[in-house]
Design a protein around this nucleic acid. Sequence first.
DNA 1: TTGTTAAACGGACCGACGGTCCGTTACGTT
DNA 2: AACGTAACGGACCGTCGGTCCGTTTAACAA
Lengths: 188, 188
Amino acid sequence: MRADAVRNREAVLQAAGRLFDTADDPAGVSMDDVAAAAGVGKGTLFRRFGDRAGLIRALYELRTERMTAELEGEGGGDAVDAVARTMDALLRFKIENRALSRALESLGGGSPYTNAAYGGLHARLAALIAATRGPEAADFLSHALLAAVRSDLVDHLADWPDDRLKSGVQTLVRSVLRGEERGAPLCR
Amino acid sequence: MRADAVRNREAVLQAAGRLFDTADDPAGVSMDDVAAAAGVGKGTLFRRFGDRAGLIRALYELRTERMTAELEGEGGGDAVDAVARTMDALLRFKIENRALSRALESLGGGSPYTNAAYGGLHARLAALIAATRGPEAADFLSHALLAAVRSDLVDHLADWPDDRLKSGVQTLVRSVLRGEERGAPLCR
DNA sequence: TTGTTAAACGGACCGACGGTCCGTTACGTT
DNA sequence: AACGTAACGGACCGTCGGTCCGTTTAACAA
Protein backbone atom coordinates (compact mmCIF):
# COMPACT_ATOMS: atom_id res chain seq x y z
CA MET A 1 0.00 0.00 0.00
CA ARG A 2 1.31 3.39 -0.96
CA ALA A 3 2.39 5.86 1.69
CA ASP A 4 -0.34 8.42 0.98
CA ALA A 5 -2.92 5.65 1.06
CA VAL A 6 -1.83 4.59 4.52
CA ARG A 7 -1.80 8.17 5.73
CA ASN A 8 -5.28 8.85 4.38
CA ARG A 9 -6.70 5.64 5.78
CA GLU A 10 -5.41 6.65 9.18
CA ALA A 11 -6.78 10.18 8.84
CA VAL A 12 -10.21 8.88 7.85
CA LEU A 13 -10.43 6.43 10.75
CA GLN A 14 -9.36 9.08 13.20
CA ALA A 15 -11.78 11.69 11.86
CA ALA A 16 -14.67 9.24 11.71
CA GLY A 17 -13.94 8.14 15.26
CA ARG A 18 -14.00 11.70 16.49
CA LEU A 19 -17.24 12.44 14.66
CA PHE A 20 -19.03 9.37 15.99
CA ASP A 21 -17.76 10.03 19.49
CA THR A 22 -19.20 13.51 19.57
CA ALA A 23 -22.42 12.70 17.70
CA ASP A 24 -25.53 11.72 19.61
CA ASP A 25 -27.25 10.44 16.50
CA PRO A 26 -24.95 8.25 14.40
CA ALA A 27 -27.18 8.80 11.36
CA GLY A 28 -26.18 12.44 11.50
CA VAL A 29 -22.61 11.57 10.55
CA SER A 30 -22.55 11.61 6.76
CA MET A 31 -19.84 10.34 4.48
CA ASP A 32 -19.28 13.90 3.26
CA ASP A 33 -18.75 14.95 6.86
CA VAL A 34 -16.16 12.25 7.36
CA ALA A 35 -14.35 13.09 4.13
CA ALA A 36 -14.28 16.78 4.98
CA ALA A 37 -13.14 16.19 8.55
CA ALA A 38 -10.37 13.91 7.33
CA GLY A 39 -9.30 16.42 4.68
CA VAL A 40 -9.79 13.80 2.01
CA GLY A 41 -11.83 13.47 -1.16
CA LYS A 42 -14.99 11.42 -1.16
CA GLY A 43 -13.62 9.08 -3.81
CA THR A 44 -10.69 8.19 -1.56
CA LEU A 45 -13.05 7.42 1.28
CA PHE A 46 -15.19 5.04 -0.76
CA ARG A 47 -12.29 3.37 -2.53
CA ARG A 48 -10.68 2.52 0.79
CA PHE A 49 -13.74 1.32 2.68
CA GLY A 50 -16.18 0.30 -0.05
CA ASP A 51 -19.24 1.86 1.51
CA ARG A 52 -20.55 3.35 4.72
CA ALA A 53 -20.96 -0.06 6.28
CA GLY A 54 -17.34 -0.86 5.51
CA LEU A 55 -16.10 2.27 7.21
CA ILE A 56 -18.19 1.65 10.31
CA ARG A 57 -17.13 -1.98 10.49
CA ALA A 58 -13.46 -1.06 10.11
CA LEU A 59 -13.71 1.53 12.87
CA TYR A 60 -15.68 -0.82 15.10
CA GLU A 61 -13.20 -3.64 14.73
CA LEU A 62 -10.34 -1.25 15.44
CA ARG A 63 -11.92 -0.27 18.74
CA THR A 64 -12.93 -3.81 19.51
CA GLU A 65 -9.42 -5.18 19.23
CA ARG A 66 -8.27 -3.48 22.42
CA MET A 67 -11.18 -4.92 24.38
CA THR A 68 -10.83 -8.46 23.09
CA ALA A 69 -7.05 -8.38 23.54
CA GLU A 70 -7.48 -7.40 27.15
CA LEU A 71 -10.06 -10.16 27.63
CA GLU A 72 -7.76 -12.79 26.15
CA GLY A 73 -5.16 -11.88 28.74
CA GLU A 74 -7.33 -12.77 31.72
CA GLY A 75 -7.47 -16.42 32.54
CA GLY A 76 -8.46 -18.03 35.81
CA GLY A 77 -11.63 -18.14 37.80
CA ASP A 78 -14.66 -20.30 37.16
CA ALA A 79 -17.03 -20.04 34.22
CA VAL A 80 -19.34 -17.60 35.98
CA ASP A 81 -16.49 -15.22 36.63
CA ALA A 82 -15.26 -15.49 33.08
CA VAL A 83 -18.70 -14.74 31.64
CA ALA A 84 -19.22 -11.96 34.15
CA ARG A 85 -15.92 -10.34 33.20
CA THR A 86 -16.66 -10.62 29.49
CA MET A 87 -20.12 -9.12 29.81
CA ASP A 88 -18.85 -6.36 32.03
CA ALA A 89 -16.15 -5.42 29.53
CA LEU A 90 -18.68 -5.51 26.72
CA LEU A 91 -21.11 -3.33 28.63
CA ARG A 92 -18.40 -0.78 29.31
CA PHE A 93 -17.44 -0.87 25.65
CA LYS A 94 -21.01 -0.20 24.58
CA ILE A 95 -21.30 2.71 26.98
CA GLU A 96 -18.00 4.22 25.89
CA ASN A 97 -18.77 3.73 22.20
CA ARG A 98 -22.46 4.52 22.19
CA ALA A 99 -22.83 6.19 18.84
CA LEU A 100 -20.43 3.92 17.00
CA SER A 101 -22.09 0.81 18.37
CA ARG A 102 -25.51 2.11 17.44
CA ALA A 103 -24.25 2.88 13.97
CA LEU A 104 -22.91 -0.65 13.59
CA GLU A 105 -26.02 -2.31 14.94
CA SER A 106 -28.39 -0.30 12.78
CA LEU A 107 -26.77 -0.97 9.44
CA GLY A 108 -29.24 -3.64 8.47
CA GLY A 109 -28.49 -6.91 6.75
CA GLY A 110 -27.52 -8.80 9.90
CA SER A 111 -24.74 -6.30 10.59
CA PRO A 112 -24.66 -6.84 14.35
CA TYR A 113 -23.92 -10.54 13.78
CA THR A 114 -21.75 -10.71 10.68
CA ASN A 115 -18.94 -9.18 12.62
CA ALA A 116 -15.64 -10.44 13.89
CA ALA A 117 -16.23 -9.33 17.47
CA TYR A 118 -19.72 -10.85 17.69
CA GLY A 119 -18.61 -14.21 16.41
CA GLY A 120 -15.73 -14.37 18.84
CA LEU A 121 -17.75 -13.26 21.83
CA HIS A 122 -20.61 -15.62 21.02
CA ALA A 123 -18.27 -18.58 20.72
CA ARG A 124 -16.46 -17.68 23.94
CA LEU A 125 -19.66 -17.26 25.94
CA ALA A 126 -21.29 -20.34 24.43
CA ALA A 127 -18.29 -22.47 25.40
CA LEU A 128 -18.45 -21.21 28.98
CA ILE A 129 -22.19 -21.65 29.24
CA ALA A 130 -22.04 -25.12 27.73
CA ALA A 131 -20.15 -26.36 30.78
CA THR A 132 -23.18 -25.97 33.04
CA ARG A 133 -26.06 -25.85 30.59
CA GLY A 134 -25.10 -28.16 27.78
CA PRO A 135 -24.16 -27.20 24.23
CA GLU A 136 -27.73 -27.13 22.92
CA ALA A 137 -28.97 -24.40 25.24
CA ALA A 138 -25.62 -22.58 25.30
CA ASP A 139 -25.91 -21.36 21.74
CA PHE A 140 -29.13 -19.43 22.22
CA LEU A 141 -28.34 -18.33 25.76
CA SER A 142 -25.11 -16.83 24.47
CA HIS A 143 -27.05 -14.84 21.89
CA ALA A 144 -29.46 -13.77 24.62
CA LEU A 145 -26.66 -12.45 26.82
CA LEU A 146 -25.23 -10.45 23.95
CA ALA A 147 -28.69 -9.11 23.12
CA ALA A 148 -29.04 -7.83 26.67
CA VAL A 149 -26.27 -5.30 26.04
CA ARG A 150 -27.49 -4.14 22.64
CA SER A 151 -26.39 -0.57 22.28
CA ASP A 152 -29.85 0.87 21.84
CA LEU A 153 -30.98 -0.79 25.06
CA VAL A 154 -27.94 0.57 26.86
CA ASP A 155 -28.82 3.92 25.36
CA HIS A 156 -32.44 3.60 26.44
CA LEU A 157 -31.29 2.99 30.00
CA ALA A 158 -28.73 5.80 29.84
CA ASP A 159 -30.30 7.59 32.79
CA TRP A 160 -29.76 4.62 35.08
CA PRO A 161 -26.68 4.90 37.23
CA ASP A 162 -23.92 2.81 35.72
CA ASP A 163 -23.77 0.37 38.59
CA ARG A 164 -27.46 -0.40 38.36
CA LEU A 165 -27.07 -1.44 34.74
CA LYS A 166 -23.96 -3.36 35.61
CA SER A 167 -25.62 -5.23 38.44
CA GLY A 168 -28.59 -5.98 36.20
CA VAL A 169 -26.28 -7.60 33.70
CA GLN A 170 -24.51 -9.53 36.44
CA THR A 171 -27.84 -10.78 37.75
CA LEU A 172 -28.73 -11.97 34.28
CA VAL A 173 -25.36 -13.68 33.91
CA ARG A 174 -25.74 -15.58 37.15
CA SER A 175 -29.31 -16.52 36.23
CA VAL A 176 -28.25 -17.90 32.90
CA LEU A 177 -25.21 -19.71 34.25
CA ARG A 178 -26.55 -21.19 37.41
CA GLY A 179 -29.88 -19.68 38.10
CA GLU A 180 -29.22 -18.81 41.69
CA GLU A 181 -29.51 -15.32 43.02
CA ARG A 182 -29.76 -13.10 46.08
CA GLY A 183 -28.17 -15.59 48.42
CA ALA A 184 -31.10 -17.91 48.61
CA PRO A 185 -31.18 -20.71 46.06
CA LEU A 186 -34.52 -20.72 44.29
CA CYS A 187 -34.67 -24.45 43.83
CA ARG A 188 -35.05 -26.61 46.88
CA MET B 1 -62.50 12.59 9.79
CA ARG B 2 -63.80 12.84 6.26
CA ALA B 3 -64.92 9.73 4.43
CA ASP B 4 -62.21 9.82 1.79
CA ALA B 5 -59.60 10.33 4.49
CA VAL B 6 -60.76 7.19 6.28
CA ARG B 7 -60.79 5.22 3.04
CA ASN B 8 -57.28 6.35 2.10
CA ARG B 9 -55.90 5.68 5.54
CA GLU B 10 -57.20 2.15 5.30
CA ALA B 11 -55.81 1.70 1.79
CA VAL B 12 -52.38 2.92 2.85
CA LEU B 13 -52.20 0.62 5.89
CA GLN B 14 -53.28 -2.36 3.84
CA ALA B 15 -50.83 -1.62 1.00
CA ALA B 16 -47.96 -0.97 3.38
CA GLY B 17 -48.72 -4.18 5.23
CA ARG B 18 -48.65 -6.16 2.00
CA LEU B 19 -45.38 -4.55 0.91
CA PHE B 20 -43.62 -5.19 4.22
CA ASP B 21 -44.92 -8.76 4.33
CA THR B 22 -43.46 -9.59 0.94
CA ALA B 23 -40.22 -7.62 1.35
CA ASP B 24 -37.14 -9.29 2.74
CA ASP B 25 -35.41 -5.98 3.31
CA PRO B 26 -37.69 -3.42 4.97
CA ALA B 27 -35.42 -0.60 3.80
CA GLY B 28 -36.43 -1.55 0.27
CA VAL B 29 -39.99 -0.40 0.89
CA SER B 30 -40.01 3.30 0.02
CA MET B 31 -42.73 5.80 0.76
CA ASP B 32 -43.25 6.22 -2.98
CA ASP B 33 -43.81 2.48 -3.23
CA VAL B 34 -46.42 2.60 -0.50
CA ALA B 35 -48.18 5.58 -2.03
CA ALA B 36 -48.24 3.95 -5.45
CA ALA B 37 -49.43 0.60 -4.09
CA ALA B 38 -52.19 2.31 -2.15
CA GLY B 39 -53.25 4.35 -5.18
CA VAL B 40 -52.74 7.53 -3.24
CA GLY B 41 -50.61 10.65 -3.60
CA LYS B 42 -47.50 11.10 -1.58
CA GLY B 43 -48.84 14.22 0.10
CA THR B 44 -51.79 12.25 1.44
CA LEU B 45 -49.49 9.62 2.84
CA PHE B 46 -47.34 12.13 4.72
CA ARG B 47 -50.28 14.21 5.91
CA ARG B 48 -51.87 11.16 7.51
CA PHE B 49 -48.84 9.58 9.12
CA GLY B 50 -46.39 12.45 9.51
CA ASP B 51 -43.32 10.56 8.39
CA ARG B 52 -42.02 7.11 7.64
CA ALA B 53 -41.63 6.32 11.32
CA GLY B 54 -45.27 7.27 11.91
CA LEU B 55 -46.50 4.93 9.21
CA ILE B 56 -44.44 2.04 10.51
CA ARG B 57 -45.51 2.66 14.09
CA ALA B 58 -49.17 2.84 13.09
CA LEU B 59 -48.94 -0.42 11.17
CA TYR B 60 -46.99 -2.08 13.95
CA GLU B 61 -49.48 -1.09 16.61
CA LEU B 62 -52.32 -2.29 14.43
CA ARG B 63 -50.76 -5.75 14.19
CA THR B 64 -49.77 -5.72 17.83
CA GLU B 65 -53.29 -5.14 19.09
CA ARG B 66 -54.43 -8.61 18.10
CA MET B 67 -51.54 -10.23 19.94
CA THR B 68 -51.90 -8.21 23.13
CA ALA B 69 -55.68 -8.67 23.14
CA GLU B 70 -55.24 -12.41 22.94
CA LEU B 71 -52.70 -12.30 25.76
CA GLU B 72 -55.01 -10.28 28.00
CA GLY B 73 -57.59 -13.00 27.68
CA GLU B 74 -55.45 -15.72 29.20
CA GLY B 75 -55.29 -15.75 32.94
CA GLY B 76 -54.33 -18.62 35.22
CA GLY B 77 -51.18 -20.58 35.77
CA ASP B 78 -48.14 -19.49 37.73
CA ALA B 79 -45.75 -16.70 36.86
CA VAL B 80 -43.45 -18.93 34.86
CA ASP B 81 -46.30 -20.07 32.66
CA ALA B 82 -47.51 -16.53 32.16
CA VAL B 83 -44.07 -15.30 31.14
CA ALA B 84 -43.55 -18.34 28.96
CA ARG B 85 -46.85 -17.75 27.16
CA THR B 86 -46.09 -14.08 26.65
CA MET B 87 -42.63 -14.71 25.27
CA ASP B 88 -43.91 -17.45 23.03
CA ALA B 89 -46.60 -15.21 21.58
CA LEU B 90 -44.05 -12.46 21.06
CA LEU B 91 -41.63 -14.80 19.35
CA ARG B 92 -44.35 -16.01 17.01
CA PHE B 93 -45.29 -12.40 16.30
CA LYS B 94 -41.71 -11.51 15.43
CA ILE B 95 -41.44 -14.48 13.10
CA GLU B 96 -44.73 -13.73 11.39
CA ASN B 97 -43.95 -10.03 11.06
CA ARG B 98 -40.25 -10.20 10.32
CA ALA B 99 -39.84 -7.30 7.95
CA LEU B 100 -42.25 -5.00 9.76
CA SER B 101 -40.61 -5.67 13.10
CA ARG B 102 -37.18 -5.07 11.64
CA ALA B 103 -38.40 -1.83 10.13
CA LEU B 104 -39.75 -0.69 13.49
CA GLU B 105 -36.66 -1.67 15.42
CA SER B 106 -34.27 -0.01 13.00
CA LEU B 107 -35.86 3.41 12.94
CA GLY B 108 -33.40 4.91 15.38
CA GLY B 109 -34.17 7.29 18.19
CA GLY B 110 -35.19 4.64 20.69
CA SER B 111 -37.97 3.44 18.39
CA PRO B 112 -38.05 -0.12 19.73
CA TYR B 113 -38.80 1.22 23.21
CA THR B 114 -40.95 4.29 22.71
CA ASN B 115 -43.76 2.08 21.62
CA ALA B 116 -47.07 1.14 23.13
CA ALA B 117 -46.47 -2.59 22.80
CA TYR B 118 -43.01 -2.50 24.35
CA GLY B 119 -44.12 -0.53 27.37
CA GLY B 120 -47.00 -2.88 28.04
CA LEU B 121 -44.98 -6.04 27.60
CA HIS B 122 -42.14 -4.77 29.72
CA ALA B 123 -44.47 -3.82 32.56
CA ARG B 124 -46.28 -7.15 32.34
CA LEU B 125 -43.08 -9.20 32.39
CA ALA B 126 -41.46 -7.08 35.07
CA ALA B 127 -44.46 -7.58 37.37
CA LEU B 128 -44.31 -11.33 36.90
CA ILE B 129 -40.56 -11.50 37.37
CA ALA B 130 -40.71 -9.29 40.45
CA ALA B 131 -42.61 -12.01 42.31
CA THR B 132 -39.58 -14.31 42.42
CA ARG B 133 -36.69 -11.93 41.78
CA GLY B 134 -37.67 -8.70 43.44
CA PRO B 135 -38.59 -5.43 41.76
CA GLU B 136 -35.03 -4.17 41.41
CA ALA B 137 -33.80 -7.01 39.24
CA ALA B 138 -37.13 -7.45 37.47
CA ASP B 139 -36.83 -4.24 35.50
CA PHE B 140 -33.61 -5.13 33.74
CA LEU B 141 -34.41 -8.81 33.41
CA SER B 142 -37.63 -7.87 31.66
CA HIS B 143 -35.69 -5.78 29.16
CA ALA B 144 -33.28 -8.68 28.70
CA LEU B 145 -36.09 -11.10 27.89
CA LEU B 146 -37.51 -8.73 25.32
CA ALA B 147 -34.04 -8.20 23.84
CA ALA B 148 -33.71 -11.95 23.34
CA VAL B 149 -36.46 -11.85 20.73
CA ARG B 150 -35.21 -8.79 18.88
CA SER B 151 -36.30 -9.20 15.31
CA ASP B 152 -32.84 -9.09 13.81
CA LEU B 153 -31.74 -11.88 16.13
CA VAL B 154 -34.79 -13.93 15.18
CA ASP B 155 -33.88 -13.17 11.59
CA HIS B 156 -30.28 -14.16 12.13
CA LEU B 157 -31.44 -17.51 13.48
CA ALA B 158 -33.99 -17.94 10.71
CA ASP B 159 -32.43 -21.21 9.58
CA TRP B 160 -32.98 -22.82 12.97
CA PRO B 161 -36.07 -25.00 13.16
CA ASP B 162 -38.83 -23.03 14.87
CA ASP B 163 -39.00 -25.33 17.86
CA ARG B 164 -35.30 -24.94 18.58
CA LEU B 165 -35.69 -21.19 18.83
CA LYS B 166 -38.81 -21.63 20.87
CA SER B 167 -37.16 -23.98 23.31
CA GLY B 168 -34.18 -21.66 23.57
CA VAL B 169 -36.47 -18.85 24.61
CA GLN B 170 -38.27 -21.12 27.08
CA THR B 171 -34.94 -22.14 28.59
CA LEU B 172 -34.05 -18.51 29.02
CA VAL B 173 -37.42 -17.76 30.60
CA ARG B 174 -37.04 -20.53 33.15
CA SER B 175 -33.48 -19.43 33.88
CA VAL B 176 -34.53 -15.89 34.51
CA LEU B 177 -37.57 -16.81 36.58
CA ARG B 178 -36.20 -19.57 38.68
CA GLY B 179 -32.84 -20.50 37.30
CA GLU B 180 -33.45 -24.20 37.27
CA GLU B 181 -33.22 -26.29 34.17
CA ARG B 182 -32.97 -29.76 32.66
CA GLY B 183 -34.51 -31.49 35.61
CA ALA B 184 -31.46 -31.25 37.80
CA PRO B 185 -31.23 -28.18 40.02
CA LEU B 186 -27.91 -26.50 39.51
CA CYS B 187 -27.52 -25.32 43.03
CA ARG B 188 -26.85 -27.84 45.71
C1' DT C 1 -80.44 21.45 -5.63
C1' DT C 2 -77.14 24.64 -5.18
C1' DG C 3 -73.53 27.45 -3.00
C1' DT C 4 -69.88 27.81 0.22
C1' DT C 5 -66.11 26.42 2.90
C1' DA C 6 -62.66 23.93 4.82
C1' DA C 7 -60.41 19.79 4.60
C1' DA C 8 -58.15 16.47 1.82
C1' DC C 9 -55.80 15.42 -2.37
C1' DG C 10 -51.70 14.53 -5.42
C1' DG C 11 -47.69 15.10 -7.75
C1' DA C 12 -44.10 18.42 -8.98
C1' DC C 13 -40.46 19.91 -6.44
C1' DC C 14 -36.48 20.23 -3.01
C1' DG C 15 -32.33 19.16 -0.23
C1' DA C 16 -29.49 15.58 1.46
C1' DC C 17 -27.20 11.56 1.14
C1' DG C 18 -24.78 7.32 -0.54
C1' DG C 19 -22.22 6.04 -4.22
C1' DT C 20 -19.73 6.52 -9.02
C1' DC C 21 -16.66 8.37 -12.68
C1' DC C 22 -12.81 10.08 -14.66
C1' DG C 23 -9.43 13.64 -15.49
C1' DT C 24 -5.51 14.91 -12.54
C1' DT C 25 -1.76 14.12 -9.23
C1' DA C 26 2.10 12.02 -7.06
C1' DC C 27 4.38 7.92 -5.30
C1' DG C 28 7.68 4.36 -6.25
C1' DT C 29 10.75 2.27 -9.40
C1' DT C 30 14.40 1.76 -13.00
C1' DA D 1 14.90 12.08 -15.17
C1' DA D 2 11.35 9.56 -16.94
C1' DC D 3 7.71 6.49 -16.73
C1' DG D 4 3.75 3.66 -15.35
C1' DT D 5 0.52 2.84 -12.14
C1' DA D 6 -2.03 3.50 -8.13
C1' DA D 7 -4.30 6.91 -5.51
C1' DC D 8 -6.63 11.22 -5.44
C1' DG D 9 -10.72 14.40 -5.29
C1' DG D 10 -14.71 16.59 -6.38
C1' DA D 11 -18.23 17.12 -9.95
C1' DC D 12 -21.89 14.35 -10.89
C1' DC D 13 -25.93 10.93 -10.53
C1' DG D 14 -30.05 8.40 -8.78
C1' DT D 15 -32.92 7.76 -4.95
C1' DC D 16 -35.36 8.82 -1.06
C1' DG D 17 -37.75 11.29 2.70
C1' DG D 18 -40.30 15.23 3.11
C1' DT D 19 -42.71 19.81 1.55
C1' DC D 20 -45.68 23.00 -1.11
C1' DC D 21 -49.46 24.61 -3.30
C1' DG D 22 -52.89 24.66 -6.92
C1' DT D 23 -56.93 21.60 -7.48
C1' DT D 24 -60.64 18.66 -6.00
C1' DT D 25 -64.35 17.09 -3.17
C1' DA D 26 -66.84 15.81 0.99
C1' DA D 27 -69.92 17.94 4.27
C1' DC D 28 -73.35 20.97 5.40
C1' DA D 29 -76.56 24.99 5.19
C1' DA D 30 -79.91 27.69 2.72
